[in-house]
Design a protein around this nucleic acid. Structure first.
Lengths: 225, 225
DNA sequence: TAAGCCGCTCAGCGGATTCTCAGCGGCGGC
DNA sequence: GCCGCCGCTGAGAATCCGCTGAGCGGCTTA
């Protein structure tokens, strides 16, 4: 159980460090935001205790930076009751739990255990091709920051293409995987749906992500066109 | 001061019930794990006394289930000295305190009082989506500062959506998690209950928190609509 | 016992989605 | 440059899907 403590008050940090050690955690302490980002990125922790008031980089910035770097370790934030940021903020910022100072040490341990038990927010599996982003969990597609709505069939086709981005896939393969293995109808459907995708994904952005490979099938440009 | 006793030995349960009643607690007794989960989820208690050896569902499973359902009522666990689980485990499993059988009744009362005293801050995590707030511990929902009353089913559905806010969840997933894993009926119930939620949460506030993802399911806007 | 709430079912409506079809047009081979 | 294949396109028909209002039965409360 590895814990990273980010706390600038040296005495508090030391108290917590000793307590958590006794509770069986392996503890690392850093005293400012920059070190926190560095440590959390380079090392792997089960949970991070993050003070919100920090020199150099506020806890809130640290969290933002970590998430943007795809570090999904659960974070418990320490907030001051009367501080600039309150509890609501802590959650909005993506903290997984928070405690208001002063806090009971037993509670800290309990919360940390709870966080570790339930694990971090799952690492999002997102498919990308240039600025084209598909998030299977949310079933959302966006390009250039703009969300694009998809019908189920369109979405299925796009997901398939993105999972094979860079490869040329034949209409038959597409029909078998996106439609039905036993699909009987006209392969022209695929052409029709490719067109729908192009109208939504390429035309409005003057791009050309979906290429036609004559006689072969289609190919999604990994760079997004 | 409401206490839930989970204890399968009827005589012991009855003794404890009477004793705690005399000490001024309002006491409810169940005799197996399944009833315990149900009671603790449906009702609100200040503390739960949980025997670890139980028919149907062990105390350890009960605790796990409760925490996973966001019931954060403090739990005092009763362990047998020579049992399969010992004291160390009790804490690791998330119990807030434990007593080894046989125990002194006075000590039980003292510990319960202590647990209830520090009970408040133990409760973590309120789920939010914009100005929509759901407090699992109290089974309360409010929007824009106004409390919104919910039937159990409505509440269950909303909690599920909020735990997955941002994600698209299918009607099947919903049925399995909010209704019953073995639910057989018409998925249309979900549509109906989505409607109820919208009538309570969205319509009166001219918002649009619950989105329909055609062909897929529903999505709760993390921003609240 | 009556009234009310709750969970659930049902059937009809209307919009969204899927798929077919037929004509067009461009690319590539000769 | 011409021909034929292949893919593109626009329109329209059929189907699917979610929404809604009504209603029923069971359980609780007065």
């Amino acid at each position: 159980m590895r814990v990273l403590i980010v706390e600038d008050e040296v005495r508090l940090a030391e108290t917590v460090r000793r307590g958590l050690s006794d509770a069986g955690f392996v503890v690392e302490v850093v005293h400012n935001g920059e070190d926190a980002v560095w440590a959390a990125t380079e090392q792997s922790y089960d949970v991070i205790v993050l003070d919100i008031m920090l020199p150099k980089l506020s806890g809130y910035k640290v969290l933002e930076e970590l998430r943007s770097r795809s570090v999904w370790t659960p974070v418990l934030m320490l907030t001051a009751k009367d501080g600039e940021y309150d509890q609501t903020d802590a959650f909005d910022l993506g903290a997984d739990d928070y405690l208001t100072k002063p806090f009971s040490f037993l509670i800290l341990v309990a919360r940390l255990r709870a966080l570790i038990r339930r694990g971090g927010p799952e690492r999002p599996v997102v498919l990308t091709a240039g600025d084209l982003i598909l998030d299977p969990a949310r079933r959302r597609v966006e390009r250039g920051g703009r969300e694009i709505s998809m019908t189920p069939r369109e979405y299925g086709l796009l997901e398939f293409l993105m999972r094979h981005r860079g490869d040329t896939v034949s209409k038959t393969e597409i029909l078998e995987n996106v439609w039905d293995p036993a699909f009987e109808g006209d392969p022209n459907v695929v052409e029709v749906y490719i067109r729908y995708l192009r109208l939504k994904l390429d035309t409005p952005f003057s791009r050309h992500a979906i290429e036609t490979v004559r006689g072969m099938g289609y190919r999604l440009d990994p760079e997004g066109g």
